[in-house]
Write a protein that binds this DNA or RNA. Sequence first.
DNA 1: CATGAATGAGTCTTCATTCAT
DNA 2: TATGAATGAAGACTCATTCAT
Lengths: 200, 200, 200, 200
Amino acid sequence: MQFQKDDIREKILAASRETFLTQGYGKASMREIAKKAGINTSNVYNYFKSKEELFYAITDPVFHHLANLRKEVFEYKANKDFKNENFMQQFTEFVPSAMFEMVKKYRKELLLIMDSSKGTKYEPLKKMVVTTMETNFTENIISQENKELLQDSFLMHILAMNLIEGILEITRNYKNDKWVKSNIDSLMKYHIRGMVQFFT
Amino acid sequence: MQFQKDDIREKILAASRETFLTQGYGKASMREIAKKAGINTSNVYNYFKSKEELFYAITDPVFHHLANLRKEVFEYKANKDFKNENFMQQFTEFVPSAMFEMVKKYRKELLLIMDSSKGTKYEPLKKMVVTTMETNFTENIISQENKELLQDSFLMHILAMNLIEGILEITRNYKNDKWVKSNIDSLMKYHIRGMVQFFT
Amino acid sequence: MQFQKDDIREKILAASRETFLTQGYGKASMREIAKKAGINTSNVYNYFKSKEELFYAITDPVFHHLANLRKEVFEYKANKDFKNENFMQQFTEFVPSAMFEMVKKYRKELLLIMDSSKGTKYEPLKKMVVTTMETNFTENIISQENKELLQDSFLMHILAMNLIEGILEITRNYKNDKWVKSNIDSLMKYHIRGMVQFFT
Amino acid sequence: MQFQKDDIREKILAASRETFLTQGYGKASMREIAKKAGINTSNVYNYFKSKEELFYAITDPVFHHLANLRKEVFEYKANKDFKNENFMQQFTEFVPSAMFEMVKKYRKELLLIMDSSKGTKYEPLKKMVVTTMETNFTENIISQENKELLQDSFLMHILAMNLIEGILEITRNYKNDKWVKSNIDSLMKYHIRGMVQFFT
DNA sequence: CATGAATGAGTCTTCATTCAT
DNA sequence: TATGAATGAAGACTCATTCAT
């Protein structure tokens, strides 16, 4: 009697993923989700107590993954007596492979939390991730003298966003794992090289 | 029907711009728009015959501007016996300054048509613009030999998107014209330089 | 169906009493009752076949008690060659002590059937009890001459209701048995004395 | 074009009064109200923006009337160098005639705010009115010595409630103004006389 | 031109109840 | 017995739009 329940639960989750993804959280309707899942609208509420909870049931895991990732990056920095070489190592090895793992594990969920979360508590998440990345870049790439010159460089913000959006676009167009990995690597390399040249 | 009061029409347009921008086309409500414009909801229909038409009244100009721009770029190419130097000129002079003029003239409209048009006929526009740009890059930057090697390079697609998204992010954070111009230039330079290095 | 676990049955009844009392019959929900009882909603239906039956399972006893009381009062009258002294005795001894016993035995049930039964077959009960009491008063207190004068005295109706409401308010604010008894006695004395003075 | 609107507005208010009165605020449904008013459910929202507002549109006037009454009573006390005779005057002249005026002006509204307001901000109002009356009685009727003896007399609370409930029962059974006036007077006289005798 | 009136479909959610296991 | 699954009706309320005045 447990496998049946999970069956439907899974159907609801799948239907939700698709619906939230195409319509966004706000425009997605419980009706449509229920119809896609092949059940009565009110029955959805036997599984998830609200539209919002349903959304979080899908997106919470990737959120926690992101939070852990952030922590790991900070620990990485703290442990490594952070110099330029280590930074390079971080952004050519650790970060891209971490991104890859995340995309591999949470494809749709990542897109949901980043692109379709308007109206939920995760709405500001993308901006926060971008800001974190931007700070990291600024601290590690821009040389001391340039820091004063390029104070408040908006370009760095754009590039951080570009990197995130690039990863998301790769995710949206997922072909296979190898394809993802290679594209993340290229993108990363492209931007790291570009930033180093531009800001130093 | 055509003797409408221009100030009210303008108020509706202004209210719509704000509402569509913050809520998106789908979630924006005629009520809220009317309230913001300080008029009765049903009176909106004396000026625009539907929510969708109202959206197009705002976004059509920037759409046509974009279409013209596209044509100009193609003509530019056709006229100039297009070689590498000309390409460089195009992307360091013509394109950035065209972008700047567009942002200057259609700030909110540009964001609306690109970011808030889900549910309208302009929904696929951003993708199309990106594709156009991508094609242009691919044709002009990747050297013949590489073209075969890097066949189906998704990175080029990402970079085209990055450029567009960068312009939009500049537009979203508009400070003043000079700020826009300088940031567009930097961004353009960054990517052109990056692409040339990466793909040749 | 009849081999039910008494403790669960009891838990449902207890949960219902509280829920019906605070929400009223109509607004009380089977969900809340089940949750308070610590069981599954649908399991409630293994013990009581509907919300209404559940309500009656709680309130039937006090209803029958009330019915018996009514009969006893009539028999009391019939047996006693009812004169004024006997009436006094009835309303200073028999009735208050009967009320006290009832409150003692059916505290919450009494409140339920009187205050929270809207939407059930017991909805008109309070009115009926008041009417009975009113008739009793009218027959025994108002002197023959006054009866014609005060024909259709609404005051008597109010006082009968006052008495019932008084008992219920005592029940609502239950402190301890002694407190109840003493307050019922005071209230009764107050009204009997008042009525005698007013109507004779 | 204004008289039509008021027509329907009035119909909604009338339908609401009846529905709230018979079902209580919580159980009354906008559907039923709309049906009774002969209009589409959603149209009700063109006149009142929520069920709660609709309830307040009906009950606010009587609330303000009650609040003023309360103030007047206090001022009456303050002005009159309050002694026993004045108290008697207050409760045999001022109060009953004020009650009468209120009942005359706000018959259904009074019942609504007192009996059908569960779930609204007026839910605690009846209790407050009773408490005010109780305090007034206690301060003016109970003699100093008795005050210590009868400390925390619950009977006084019941009698205050009885008086209020009596007024409400008169209101519920409204025949005509004269009938109301005479019954209020009788009830008041009955209780004042009873209390004086009982508590002094 | 402007407004209020009106509507029917849709929003999310809760309800009492039944059924299969 | 106990539970989760299921449902259709109903809850309050919002939506874009039309119509008469």
